[in-house]
Design a protein around this nucleic acid. Structure first.
Lengths: 167, 167
DNA sequence: GGCTAAACTTGCTCAACGCAAGCCAGCGAA
DNA sequence: TTCGCTGGCTTGCGTTGAGCAAGTTTAGCC
């Protein structure tokens, strides 16, 4: 237990509590990739370049915090586990949107061109990351949202769906 | 210089870059309080309970990153410095909004009742933190936005204005 | 001339991070 | 059968960062 506001300190401010859970060193980046469909240990490691002991402890803490769930799957006969988004993890999306907008506006990209874009698949148009489509004015539902990250690929990536937590 | 994505690593993803600048241990909390009007070293220390060597280095880094500016002021004759928001610092507000919403939804408050609220002063009504007022539908401009944090006071706090950075 | 306050700075300790290497279970190939 | 490989961790060790406490500087004030 740290003294800083890190692991779920009982602070009154919801921002403080959110920062306590989400503000650790890799958590938001793991959630970004999980929202883009990454589920497996190897994939997180390869995409993020994070050391595996740290990834391991981070994933465990995120499962404990209810941001991810560990679900078994069968990878060629052998039973393994993958990390799927919970609704709490999926609902970090507005935070990621806000960070993306701020990052585009206030930080310098190493590559000159090709910023990240969000596509509202229902109308097929580019929109700024947010709740409502700039183009058609409709609310952007998560199943209709795709991200284009030109530095990786020109293909859009549809957001991953959270696992259905019974209730 | 760390190896993680911490201090302005030249990453392609705007979220990664934003997390690199904003994701350090106290940065978002300092920005929260700066957006609520805190400007002085002492006040940050008292409000956040942060150690002063860390506050000192954090403020210096934030000034260097362009989130805050150090401006001289005269406190009863003596010239001192205060830390004022730049526009880059002020525009972290949507991130804080998103964190506040997520925190209210997905974390447990130590006190039972009294969640944080946002008031749109133009119509005088409570709204969820965001770009548009839930009540009147108008965009909430920052000068019209006030936060009520009942665990501190029942008085609303109007958001601080950033310093005018020439052009 | 001594006191006080604001804003740091310095020194020490411990937790967190990063790297590298090792481990383990099961499959497929030799 | 043993060998190697692959995915997911765990262990050990060194480095960076955070927390605490105490000291320092600057200038107004009595």
């Amino acid at each position: 237990m740290t003294k800083g506001p890190r692991p779920q300190a009982p602070v009154s401010c919801p921002i403080g509590r959110a920062v306590g859970l989400l503000g650790e060193r890799w958590t938001l980046l793991i959630l970004r990739n999980a929202n883009l469909g990454t589920t497996r240990f190897d994939a997180f490691r390869a995409e993020l370049g994070i050391a595996d002991n740290i990834l391991s402890s981070r994933l465990a803490r995120m499962v404990e915090a209810g941001l991810l769930t560990r679900v078994p799957y069968r990878g060629s006969g052998r039973t393994r586990h993958e990390y799927r988004l919970t609704t709490a993890g999926a609902e970090v999306l507005p935070v990621l949107h806000a960070l993306a907008v701020w990052g585009q506006e206030h930080t310098e990209s190493p590559e000159p061109a090709a910023p990240m874009r969000v596509i509202h698949q229902q109308c097929g148009q580019v929109t700024t990351p947010g709740r409502v489509c700039d183009h058609c004015g409709e609310p952007v539902r998560r199943e209709e949202e795709a991200w284009v990250r030109p530095w990786l690929s020109s293909e859009p990536t549809v957001l991953a769906s959270p696992v259905r937590t019974g209730s």
